[in-house]
Amino acid sequence: MKCKIHTLLCLIVTVFAGTGIVNGQSSVPEENRACLKCHASQTFSIYNEWTEREEKRLMNPLYILDTVQLAGGVHHTFNCIDCHSYEYETYPHNGELKLEPMMTCIDCHGGDPTFAEWQFDRVEEEFKKSVHFETHGEQFSCSKCHSQHYYRATARTSSDVKEIVEYSNNMCLSCHDNMTKYQLVSEHENPQLIEIHSWLPNQALHFRRVRCIECHTDVQDSLMVSHNILRKEHATKNCVECHSANSMLQASLYKYQNLRTRTETGGNNQKSFLSLFKVNASDEEFTSEYYVIGASRVPFLNVFFAVVFFAAVGGIVIHTIMRMIKK
């Protein structure tokens, strides 16, 4: 019996470790456990001085953190008070602390050579040209799109383009498909995304396979992810910008993958069956893992098409001449 219980426990631990729950919680700093005791829970206890009783209350859902997501985020090693006021260490918290200005990304990352690779200053520069800044100014902080608690740099770290797309588009949709959040910064009606994009052929597929920012930003080759979100009138409606041999997607959605492939292969094309499906466009490459009409091309097929075409036309011309001569 004891042995069975032991086996069962081992199994449970294995399953949880597999889902990352055990890993996730262990990567949260010890100092944060006191905060998460309430902020990762549906309820909290407080001593009510009026009633002179310890009371259990429901936590405001907006203040409940998802510890799994938190552990997977880029800031998972941070202490809560690295960004929030140290006064939060006192419980019950002082209500006025809610009004304290929050730290912004640039407060830590700006001008710091440690983060040079991430180009935060360039990101800020581009963001300040964007419609978000133009319309809402400083009120539109990085956190409107990038949750400091959960943010993952998928465009750099994920090898799955679909994941990069979904993660990025969910940032946009968190406001543009959510009237409550949209109203935080705008008095306008939230645009109807499906109707407004009805001109786009295969709309559902585009939404799943490319990011909103592919068309809605001014793509900068020198920046990993363009942050200059354009006014809707300036968004590209030109299919050929993506659907051509010189596809813009090379410099945007597939940029990190391209850079990594080049690093891994030292700039050489792999000479394998798979390399047959690699497509040259300028000096960038599309891999065989996805297909874009007009952009993906198979080089050896181009040669095959040309040879067969000229052989057929040549044969017809020679045959015609021969018939004329022998007439």
Binding site: L274, F277, S288, Y290, Y291, S296, L301, F309, V313, I316
Partner: peptide
Amino acid sequence: VFRVSGVMLTAVLHSVSGFLVFIFLLI
């Protein structure tokens, strides 16, 4: 399909067949 996009393979099959129909048309 073997690390190649299924859509890519379908598109290749489609364009090769289409090209051969084009050559057939000329002849």
